[in-house]
Design a protein around this nucleic acid. Structure first.
Lengths: 217, 217
DNA sequence: TTAGTTACTGACTGGTTAGTCATTAAACAC
DNA sequence: GTGTTTAATGACTAACCAGTCAGTAACTAA
């Protein structure tokens, strides 16, 4: 008979914050910030609400911790990836998008964009932080990759300020879908096939072409 | 001195529901369902909370009305558009995406996808309704257009089950952005340029090409 | 064993808000 | 006018929940 099965108290000061933010992340993503009760978060983490206040000053502080904790490792991994890569732009872009999906979009962290979008209006300072720490830095990475391809004559000269958003939008969209409609209306779409199709379509769209029907009149 | 400036009561049974759903839509989109107070919605519509209950049974009923009302005219317009069009697939697809942006994404209705995504977990039956009444029907339209292009040998044979979502994702993403981060972190992106770039990139991606670097190894 | 320390608990409270209803006033019928 | 109907009000209540804190149980050191 272990400590969890009985009502016995465990003492785990080190692990608590992570357990609480993990529980909070999944509930915030599923139900939204305002609709999630602190009792519920605490219960999912296996503690009482009082314990939550030993580690976080308020519900809002917990929200900010959830965002900060989920976001920092991800963006640093992305920057490290670009720094050590010498691949050609095509396979670099391909592995960038695929890695985002595998390491973020297709994990619990994939709910963060949905959460942050939903709550940006209620937490403008956190939204600004997220924008600077994640979105701007992520887009800058993509811009660099695409610029390499343009400079090398491999990609058409698209606007680098727009192309980053265009490239991540379908992936963010799928991740958001998986944390909203997916639970009630599964279309049976294979995520990997979707990601492959996007990468394929995007690379073809960026390619220097010979036929011209697609250009604007 | 008119009736609105003074505290005088107006009697407008006909117009009330629309005024209330309009006020509710913008507040739900801005702050989320749970964080929006009924007093606030009523105040924005220029009435008291009691009046709201003359027209809607509950907060949840108001939410459903907001979705239903915002969604029905839009999808019907889209279907009418396809029915009466005999254009070639390229310009048809182009005008489809552009029209969605002009008539939905770039209006108040553009907040509905964000709202519905945020609240799908809390209102699964409304999410199913939205999925069937909007998403499935919308994707079916796009699939038809793309299929025409594939059959005519103008588009590459992409998977029609995936391409619809890929084509709308960047537009939905921008609309959602405009109702979340935009108010606190404006990147100064020109929406029309973004839409043009997306259409351009997508049509190039769909085009039958001659060079082959972009295919998977 | 015992005294001291601290992670943890859960009943409590104060503020907030969805939903109600007795009252008010605008419109209408005559 | 006068009486009747009904759109609209806003004070009220019951429930809910973020945040508190006095008390408890687990660990530690002696």
């Amino acid at each position: 008979m272990n400590a969890e099965a009985t009502g016995m108290r465990r003492r785990r000061k080190e692990a608590r914050p992570q357990e609480l933010t993990a529980a909070a992340l999944s509930l915030f993503v599923e139900k939204g910030f305002a609709a999630t009760r602190l009792d519920e978060i605490a219960a999912r983490a296996g503690v009482s609400k009082g314990t939550l206040y030993l580690y976080f000053d308020s519900k809002e502080a917990l929200f900010k911790a959830v965002i900060a904790e989920g976001v920092i490792p991800a963006i640093e991994a992305g920057e490290a990836m670009l720094a050590e890569s010498a691949d050609d732009p095509v396979s670099l872009l391909r592995s960038f998008l695929q890695s985002w999906w595998t390491m973020i979009g297709n994990t619990e962290l994939g709910g963060i964009p949905k959460l942050m979008m939903s709550e940006a209006g209620n937490f403008p300072d956190t939204a600004r932080y997220y924008d600077e720490a994640v979105i701007q830095r992520g887009l800058a990475l993509l811009r660099k990759v695409v610029q390499r391809g343009i400079d090398g004559g491999i990609f058409r000269p698209v606007d680098p300020a727009l192309i980053g958003t265009l490239l991540v939008a379908p992936l963010v969209h799928l991740a958001t879908w998986n944390h909203s409609f997916a639970s009630c209306c599964n279309h049976g779409i294979d995520a990997q096939a979707y990601v492959d199709a996007h990468i394929d379509l995007a690379l073809n769209g960026l390619a220097v072409r010979t036929t011209e029907y697609g250009t604007r009149s």
